[in-house]
Amino acid sequence: METTRHFTATVYIVESGAVALHHHERLGIRVPPGGHVDRDELPHEAGLREVREETGLDAELLDGTDDVDAPAGRVLPRPRHQMLYDINVHPDGTAGHQHIDHVYYARVDSREIDPAGDDEADTEAWEWYDETELRESDVDPDTVQFSLEAIEAAENVASTAAE
Rank of each mutant, 00 (worst) to 15 (best):
A125L: 07
R111S: 14
I151A: 00
R111F: 03
D58K: 11
E41M: 00
Y104Q: 05
I87C: 10
F146V: 01
G96L: 04
D138K: 12
D58T: 12
T65Y: 05
P115F: 00
Y85N: 14
A70G: 08
D86E: 15
H102V: 00
E152I: 06
E112W: 03
M83I: 15
D109Q: 12
A72N: 13
A46M: 06
E50I: 00
T94V: 12
D67I: 09
E41S: 06
D58R: 11
V75S: 14
Y85G: 10
H99A: 15
D58N: 12
S110T: 08
A70C: 13
D86L: 09
E53G: 04
H102A: 11
S147D: 03
G64P: 03
L57K: 02
L76A: 14
H44D: 07
H99Q: 13
P71L: 10
G64K: 07
L84W: 11
A125Y: 06
R80E: 13
D40P: 00
L84E: 11
A150T: 04
R49M: 04
Y105A: 05
H81V: 07
E60L: 11
V139C: 01
R52S: 08
G93P: 04
R107P: 01
V68G: 01
A70L: 15
R52E: 09
E53L: 15
L61D: 03
R107H: 09
D63G: 04
D67N: 12
E50C: 08
I87R: 13
L148G: 04
E127R: 15
D142H: 14
D114E: 14
Y85D: 15
L134N: 00
D130M: 08
R74N: 09
A46I: 00
V144M: 05
G73W: 10
L76K: 08
E136T: 11
A121S: 15
G93T: 04
H81G: 02
R78S: 14
T65R: 06
G56F: 01
A125Q: 09
E133Q: 13
T94H: 13
G64H: 07
L61V: 09
E41H: 08
P79K: 02
P141I: 03
A59I: 00
E120V: 10
A72F: 15
I87K: 14
W128K: 05
Q82S: 13
E60F: 08
E53N: 11
A153I: 04
L76Y: 08
I100T: 09
H102E: 10
D118L: 12
D101P: 01
V75K: 09
D130A: 06
E133C: 05
